[in-house]
Write a protein that binds this DNA or RNA. Sequence first.
DNA 1: TCGGGTTTCGG
DNA 2: CGAAACCCG
Length: 680
Amino acid sequence: MSGGGCNIVWFRRDLRVEDNPALAAGVRSGSVVAVFIWAPEEEGLYYPGRVSRWWLKHSLAHLDSSLKSLGTSLITKRSTDTVSALLEVVKSTGATQIFFNQLYDPVSLVRDHKAKDILTAQGIAVHSFNADLLYEPWEVNDDHSHPFTTFAAFWERCLSMPYDPDSPLLPPKRIISGDVSRCASDTLVFEDESERGSNALLARAWSPGWSNADKALTTFINGPLLEYSKNCRKADSATTSFLSPHLHFGEVSVRKVFHLVRIKQVLWANEGNQAGEESVNLFLKSIGLREYSRYMSFNHPCSHERPLLGHLKFFPWVVDEGYFKAWRQGRTGYPLVDAGMRELWATGWLHDRIRVVVSSFFVKVLQLPWRWGMKYFWDTLLDADLESDALGWQYISGTLPDGREIDRIDNPQFEGYKFDPHGEYVRRWLPELARLPTEWIHHPWNAPESVLQAAGIELGSNYPRPIVEIDAAKARLDEALSEMWQQEAASRAALENGTDEGLGDSESMPIAFPTDIQMDVDHEPARNNPTLGRRYEDQMVPSMTSSFLRVEEEETSLDLRNSATDSRAEVPTNVNVNQEPRREAIQEGNMQTVRSNVTLPQFNMTIGLRNAEDSTAESSSTSTRRERDGGVVPVWSPSTSSYSEQFVVEDNGIATSSSYLQRQPQSHQIMNWRRLSQTG
DNA sequence: TCGGGTTTCGG
DNA sequence: CGAAACCCG
């Protein structure tokens, strides 16, 4: 069935040989050329950060050696244009088919669609698979076939789907290598000289690569999982799964994680092990959040740049690079926050709880633009993951229907005693506070002078006073919020009067990313960088310095209100006609090959859908229908896009969009929150 | 020890 | 907002 030609298996963030549907299908279909293409420029602003690239480098090496032991090797290509690199590989190998696993971040959705179009036009058969999720985003809908807008409902549905996620596949026993004699690998460079020193430490704590991921999973399931719910509240507990970087690069399949954990759950349930069951549920919830982040990214592909609840575009952010810098350096004067930021910088890792603490502090106390924080996480986290990053920050910023309330300020002092009751975490990361008694460890500003003296602390000198008092922050936040609501109401009124030209213009002034973000080297803790010097700014915050990118903050928020009244607004549409083609992907269930097609919300993905209910047809008036394998599904045709007006999001801002957005074609999405009007 | 009012917290 | 935890008489 291979038709003589060989099969390209295009690896991306699925760097494993086990439970890799694209690889399995490629192998089944004949000889295989395994390819990885490094084209980070395509990610634009989200060029991977230093530690993330470090991981990738090692993960690829690991994959390559696994492939070698199976009979082939990994071809690597350096390019600025993935699609042409693929074409080149096609030409030099005589491939006739290409297999890959789906991704859901905005950049990949666009790029993969384009790749599919172009390759198909060249006569190449393109097959893509789900390898990253329990269920594809379009499979999980509410009773009216609309996407969920809250996590709890989404996850509940996932757990009660009528069919289980596909079972994990075993690795291939053997791979017949395609002819790569005319297809040379490029050497990929993932770190420059200046980064090597900082990266050296990482290897002590982490082992990238799919079989290490597998070990980590086993270790976790047999050990810390049982105590997971107990320990998840401790800032420095070593009992998290530590799977997130593995999962990000697809070194371990989430379906395998799910299956193994489920087995454990059944076991514990039978034993009446209450704590165990609870732990499993909690852990699965974090898997669920990961799923949900893809779900949201797919349904709202701009969620990494625009708040999903529209009012936030009127929030008067404090654009203060000094605050931003203090936060990054861990010099805010709040020990828990500072400890977290220093751990992040030193290790590329942060406990989930602490991520919430520092990001909440960032948004609520400092009131810095949330996208700065998101970007910083992206640049510094070992498990940097755009979808999760966006979801997390939107959650914190109060722009999700089920997110944290925007007017709630968390007090780092109290959280300190909650997550780090004995101050051990703070002492580890803030050596200057190490001698401070626990009583004061989370609020040194209240400590008597004598205590401070005995501990060798001089506030404002070797440890800062609080950068902003909590009370002041509360007041400022209240003020900002009332201003926001005012602006929002005004804009709405203007809209209703039809006098809305230029609406939101003043409020949605672009907020540029700081131009010269750099860490103050001498304040960096635990960096162990022998070559520390000023020319290494970009090692510290790799992608921010690469070029000056202006990014609009909140420029085109989605006003959910507009669509709230119409239930059909549930089905988002892609209005971004002139920017990039709609995405399309083919999901080929390996066996059942339900090649039915359904309209995928924004992206017009052509996908397999098991239960195409005809309510999905309402997805757009441009649906046509086609029958396949018994499934009736709508097919959305991009050329005939005529949308109901009410689906189209207000477009102010996009047109005048920053260079970033222009460089990075995004579709923009239509909202479908049901609950949004509650906020008005 | 048991209400029941209050605070916390949640994705 | 609603459930759960918490606190107090």
